[in-house]
Design a protein around this nucleic acid. Structure first.
Lengths: 232, 232
DNA sequence: GCTTATTGGTTCGATATTGGTTCAGATTGA
DNA sequence: TCAATCTGAACCAATATCGAACCAATAAGC
């Protein structure tokens, strides 16, 4: 009759919770950053003591499958749990942050000229609006919202549909990947100020139709971002 | 059950408000400038805290779907809502040959450095093989086959999956209808010889790890191709 | 003009949620 | 028995959300 001792229940529960997380990661929403149920919800759902829940979650965190933040919750990290290999298929999905950064550092500076020649006054107005809103943003979330908007405007300012597609891919990849995990620790308030200055530099150079300066500003900005991300 | 906590209500509400705005934009009156309900009305209508309403409205504003003015209200903007949600999948939107050429002229030269630093001996062997086969090709179709193969090898020589993806997009667009029609008229036998020489220049520079010369060769090649296509 | 009402923007204290921690008591298995 | 482990519950601290008041720009009525 030892089949339903609290001890064995814990072991059973651990397995089921693992399976649940893995399932959520694989079929549910492959996107990292998805919020998982709270510990107390898992307790109710699997009828398992919280300690057991916390134990499995701790393991998953150690494996790098999830991240946990007090007051916020538990989230899927970039790496697939349970040693689930990379999903094949020539999707954009499996490009590493390092690769993306490498590509951006080559490609985006070269697009400065395109913006300088093609951007309209309306484009510049939208850029300024994004800068202002980003600077006034109270929360980090809001800042990133307007940061993304600025990138979108810059892309559209090239007035080149192919380039726009490419830059859409960039943001798509940024939204995936292990990027999300890094971001939290990386964007500190003072770094955010620095980013804002660099954004102003870039937009300023573009407005003056100074392609060379814009190119230099973009390179500086991306190198700065890379340094913050990877330390080199 | 805590299914109707104020917290979960907020998350639900965000979605519903989004849907409401989108619906208003699509079916209601496509005309930009339409006035939307005030924040306080949305609060009452969806039984959701104003914070949540403002959060979703902020997102929609950042996406460019709506505009907001103190004392006036919230209005539909020109851009269709949910624009960012579009996944840049393999839907090769119709980019004109001119646009593609513009983009290639900026992007591809910048990738020379990437090949110079990352390409392996095996990559160079494959390039050479493509060059030979292309030169021996009897028909124009065969030539273009090996021409495409060379492009593929060059892409893979960057050893950067994101770049490879972009260059795949380039060939995908090139394969599109309008382009193909031009090509036939354009690639004459003597031009083909000229292309072969330029390809050898590019590969040669890459093999010597001379990024600057490779860049120049690529620019020259693309400009030549453009001249043949459009006459400028 | 002036006043008043409306509306998006802001601030701030109170409250709720959530992962992290502690600990006395029960359970387990040698 | 007895040491090790698990349990349940309370408590803690970080975070998010709420509610309500207040602010500033605009519009409406006089």
């Amino acid at each position: 009759m030892a089949a339903d001792t609290s001890r064995s229940r814990a072991r059973e529960g651990a397995k089921r919770i693992r399976e649940f997380i893995v399932a959520a990661a694989v079929e549910g929403t492959p996107a990292p950053g998805t919020k998982l149920p709270t510990e107390r919800e898992l307790v109710k759902r699997f009828n398992v003591p919280r300690n057991a829940v916390r134990k499995t979650l701790a393991e998953l965190e150690a494996e790098g499958s999830i991240t946990r933040h007090v007051g916020r919750g538990t989230f899927l990290a970039g790496r697939a749990p349970g040693g689930i290999g990379e999903i094949p298929g020539d999707n954009v999905s499996h490009t590493s942050p390092a690769e993306l950064m490498d590509a951006r550092l080559r490609i985006e500076p070269a697009l400065a000229e395109l913006i300088v020649t093609n951007a309209t006054a309306a484009d510049f107005e939208r850029m300024e609006a994004c800068l202002e809103k980003a600077e006034k943003a109270a929360t980090l979330d809001e800042f990133e919202l307007w940061d993304a908007a600025l990138h979108q405007v810059l892309a559209e300012a090239t007035h080149n549909r192919f380039v726009i597609r490419i830059l859409d891919m960039v943001t798509a990849v940024r939204r995936q990947a292990e990027w999300g995990k890094l971001k939290d620790r990386i964007v500190t308030p003072e770094r955010r100020i620095r980013y804002q200055e660099e954004h102003r530099d870039i937009v300023g150079a573009l407005k003056e139709r100074d392609a060379e300066r814009a190119r230099a500003s973009i390179v500086a900005h991306l190198q700065h971002a890379r340094r913050n991300l990877f330390g080199f």
